[in-house]
């Protein structure tokens, strides 16, 4: 099933290269683990500036889909291309460089617990041997409402604070794509709406967003604010949904 290339609502904040017309593309992708098929015959293209939800029951392969989309996993068969480059042709360094264009938000919000929130936020800069601008860092912390916690250690943060911090870290290097795996899985509805608002803002800034979630209320709320597509994983296949939501 192929998702039609969405028309971006706004121009991307950092234009893709002239040759790049698709940020993420799956062509007949299948993924098996220990002989068990998780995904089969997945074909889709995500256009720059699009907003997609990925839904499906627990264990249906949402996380696997996202891992394939940021090259943590390689497809068993088929082809995954990131920014028009086949992931199987990417060296280990290429994968690292590609991930700097992809902001990843996990449900369990992986942080380095021995470093402050500010240091964790600046991590994408740190690992590329670049200096982060303290002013921009402050602004970003303000954007997610965590300015007062910049010196706190991750274990001191609540679930909602961690999710917002993870989102801020994902966007600090101005990535082209945000992949969020159950970003509202551990927070209450009020915090879910706050996180959704941040994602919608990012999409309006031109970022391509993919959110894996099983929260249909969240999807409905998003559709009221921004043009989205809903992809559903069922029986190992990704189907376009939406009209029934």
């Amino acid at each position: 099933m192929e998702s039609t290339a969405d028309v971006p609502l706004v121009k991307p904040s950092r234009p893709l290269s002239v040759k790049e017309t698709t940020v993420i593309a799956f062509e007949n992708v299948a993924y098996s683990y220990s002989g068990s098929e998780l995904l089969a015959d997945v074909s889709l293209r995500l256009a720059p500036g699009s907003f997609h939800f990925l839904t499906g029951p627990s264990g249906s392969g949402k996380s696997t889909f996202l891992k394939l989309a940021y090259a943590e996993l390689r497809p068993t068969t088929g082809r995954v291309t990131l920014f028009d480059r086949d992931v199987t042709t990417l060296s280990r360094d290429d994968v690292a460089r590609t991930r700097r264009r992809i902001g990843i938000v996990h449900q369990d919000c992986r942080f380095l617990d021995h470093m402050t929130l500010a240091a964790n936020m600046a991590l994408p800069f740190t690992v590329s041997d670049r200096e982060s601008d303290p002013k921009e860092l402050d602004e970003l912390l303000g954007w997610v409402g965590l300015s007062h916690l910049s010196g706190a250690l991750p274990p001191q943060l609540s679930g909602g604070e961690r999710q917002r911090a993870a989102l801020a870290r994902a966007v600090i290097v101005d990535p082209d794509v945000i992949l969020a795996d159950e970003p509202t899985g551990n927070v209450d509805w009020e915090m879910s709406l706050k996180i959704l608002t941040l994602l919608v803002e990012l999409n309006r800034m031109g970022k391509t967003i993919v959110v894996a979630t099983h929260d249909l209320n969240l999807i409905r709320q998003a559709k009221a604010q921004v043009q989205t597509r809903v992809l559903r994983i069922a029986k190992h296949r990704v189907q376009l949904a939406g009209a029934d939501l």
Partner: peptide, 16 residues
């Protein structure tokens, strides 16, 4: 290992 996973997630190369 968790530290390494986080570093990879944010784009760290093996050399880093």
């Amino acid at each position: 290992i968790e530290v390494i996973r986080v570093l990879r997630l944010v784009g760290a190369k093996d050399s880093y």
